[in-house]
Design a binder for these strands. Structure first.
Lengths: 193, 193
DNA sequence: ATAATAACTTTACAATGTAAAGATTGAGAG
DNA sequence: CTCTCAATCTTTACATTGTAAAGTTATTAT
């Protein structure tokens, strides 16, 4: 199975090895050849499964994004109501990347800012975590019986999202230390009006 | 002067060439050798001025950061009062990176998230744009005669900053299109309570 | 069983960062 | 003015990387 010419499931093994390398030495430590070596195959073997390095990266990013999405969904599930869900999401957003700062740089760092390629689609329609926030926000508005124009709603979601994203970006910068707790509930509550 | 062995001012020429390349083909198109070639010198010449590629990158980032800081300062200068200054800063923050999306990825993309190395210092004390916002926010509080505890003040600044940063991050993602105007005044006004 | 195809290896090459050693120039000391 | 020297730049060399091409092996279909 895993000896000789046919690896068994090289595709997944490459993705897993890639994630491991990123955890250990960041995206810089990740090369096609190292990933291949970590799987015990020759440096050209990945080309049977991925067109080029970029495609492998995308697969790895998709995998990390799934893990990210899982945590957000859990954060929503653990909340009693929609308001709590939003606050939990924000805290999870920051927490996830504070725990895995390399992931933040990997997902949002370079050219392929979002893992899933969607050059011709709207960001807001296509990125699952954003959709989750959008839906949760709608529930929150209904829950609190708040009426908003469509534009105002969109603005509200973007404000929440960008705050979470911006906080995460700052919180997982190397060398950042503040007396402030990035998961503090207050910071999220304010954003809900 | 610029012919033969002594270039004249290679150090600055390398930085300028680096910025130009980033504008044309992003950070990926930037290699030490290309920068050197653009200056008409051999590929090893930069090592007389920069210890390694990373040091050159830092110099380029510092230069871009100065340009960024200039725009922010101008935004503040053009405002009538502190409240307007904060809103102008936010709009400028997003606007600058929407106009130069490659700069965003370059400055905040990879490992050296902030150009100036400051591994052992607090982010909030060290990054000039942040300091500018902090000071302007203090003026705003005085202007409006709002009393806040130290912690609350810090929270307010971080909220403003992370919103601007997060909005910029989203706005300059490739493929992002929303009906929303990223510089809309409303989005900033809300963050001021 | 044989042919076709997918998965992998080997070999090769161009681009890159960097080290080491040599060449050239300008500036200051005598 | 000449000599020396240090700064600047070139040349050469090498390891790492992404990728292409051709060959090898194992699986699958007929």
């Amino acid at each position: 199975m895993s000896d000789g010419y046919h690896h068994g499931n090289l595709r997944q093994a490459l993705i897993d090895a890639g994630i491991k390398i990123i955890n250990e030495s960041g995206e810089d430590g990740l090369s096609l050849r190292k990933v291949a070596a970590a799987c015990g195959v020759s440096h050209a073997a990945p080309y049977a499964h991925f067109k080029d390095k970029e495609k492998l990266m995308e697969a790895i990013k998709a995998s990390v994004n799934e893990q990210f999405m899982d945590e957000l969904e859990q954060a929503v599930a653990e909340a009693k109501n929609a308001e709590g869900a939003i606050i939990n999401m924000g805290r999870s957003y920051v927490s996830f990347f504070v725990r895995n700062p390399d992931y933040f740089r990997f997902l949002f760092g370079n050219q392929n800012i979002i893992a899933h390629p969607r050059p011709d689609k709207h960001f807001k329609e296509d990125y699952p975590p954003f959709t989750l926030l959008k839906d949760t926000y709608q529930k929150y508005l209904k829950e609190k019986k708040i009426k908003k124009k469509k534009e105002e709603q969109e603005l509200g979601v973007i404000r929440l999202w960008s705050s979470a994203h911006g906080l995460a970006a700052i919180a997982c910068m190397p060398g950042v230390e503040t007396s402030f707790d990035w998961e503090e509930k207050k910071i999220w509550a304010v954003l809900l009006r």
